[in-house]
């Protein structure tokens, strides 16, 4: 820590911690091994505060704040987990599940999907909201990668990595509301993109199986069958 950076002290979950003045609550929490669930945030990319999973309670403020974009303040008292936060987080994950077709058992990312593992960590055993499941296109036109809109949680990580790190800005979001989707250039097949450098960064940052590497699907699916009972549960509920 360089001497001219000011240090702030605050409390997270009752524990006294110190932080640099420009740090977010999330990064301080992580340094102190306090877990806050996140999806849209990724170290190295701009934080946008979109998924709302990292919401925390701050003493003296009626509003919940997203830990990934809220900077620390002297004397702040943060609560990262409470019954209320836990139930909100579970519902948020559920909403992500009902918005698109996330049937993990047929997903290439089954087993290393951040959405799936968060759901498990938060103890989600069934989805009680009605499913929406629009039928969306899968783009397999790129020779190495594929894009399946049905798995996309619109965290925007791919858009940011492509713009901020690779500098290509091949991806962006189109439309709005729940109809918004990731688009490649002018909403054209990925394989026909003139801007894509095929670097594959978007595929690596994608938390789910929306962006994937071709040819890897079957092997990974067969490796992780222990998740199946859990997923069948989810699907079973849908047919109720």
């Amino acid at each position: 820590m360089s001497p001219n950076v000011r240090v702030k002290t605050l409390k997270i979950d009752g524990k006294d911690v110190s932080a640099r003045e420009d740090q977010t609550i999330l990064s301080v929490a992580r340094e102190n091994d306090i877990f806050i669930p996140t999806l849209c945030q990724m170290d190295g990319l701009t934080s946008v505060g979109a998924c709302r999973l990292c919401l925390v309670e701050i003493k003296g403020s009626a509003k919940l704040q997203a830990a990934c974009v809220t900077e620390v303040q002297e004397g702040m008292e943060v609560v990262t987990d409470s019954e209320r936060l836990h139930s909100y987080r579970k519902m948020l994950i559920e909403l992500l599940f009902v918005a698109r077709n996330h049937i993990c058992s047929v997903c290439v990312s089954n087993g290393h999907c951040e959405l799936q593992s968060l759901a498990q960590r938060l103890g989600i055993t069934h989805i009680h909201f009605p499913f929406r499941y629009p039928k969306l296109a899968v783009d397999l036109s790129h020779d190495r990668f594929g894009m399946d809109n049905n798995r996309c949680i619109r965290c925007g990580r791919c858009v940011r990595v492509c713009d901020e790190i690779e500098g290509a800005h091949t991806w962006d979001l189109m439309g709005r509301g729940d109809a918004s989707q990731i688009v490649c250039d002018l909403n054209q097949p990925w394989g026909s993109s003139e801007t894509c450098t095929s670097c594959g960064k978007c595929v690596h940052v994608c938390p789910t199986g929306a962006l994937f590497e071709k040819g890897k699907s079957s092997s990974e699916m067969s490796k992780r069958q222990e998740f199946l009972p859990y997923l069948t549960l989810m699907r079973g509920d849908h047919n109720e």
């Binding site: 962006d172 189109m174 439309g175 709005r176 490649c184 250039d185 002018l186």
Partner: peptide, 22 residues
């Protein structure tokens, strides 16, 4: 028109499309 705007204003294609559909 979208392609033209992208070139003239130096904005990535996908961003132009994203704005136009928003």
């Amino acid at each position: 028109a979208l392609k033209y705007l992208s070139r003239a204003l130096r904005i990535p294609l996908s961003q132009v499309y994203g704005v136009a559909t928003f």
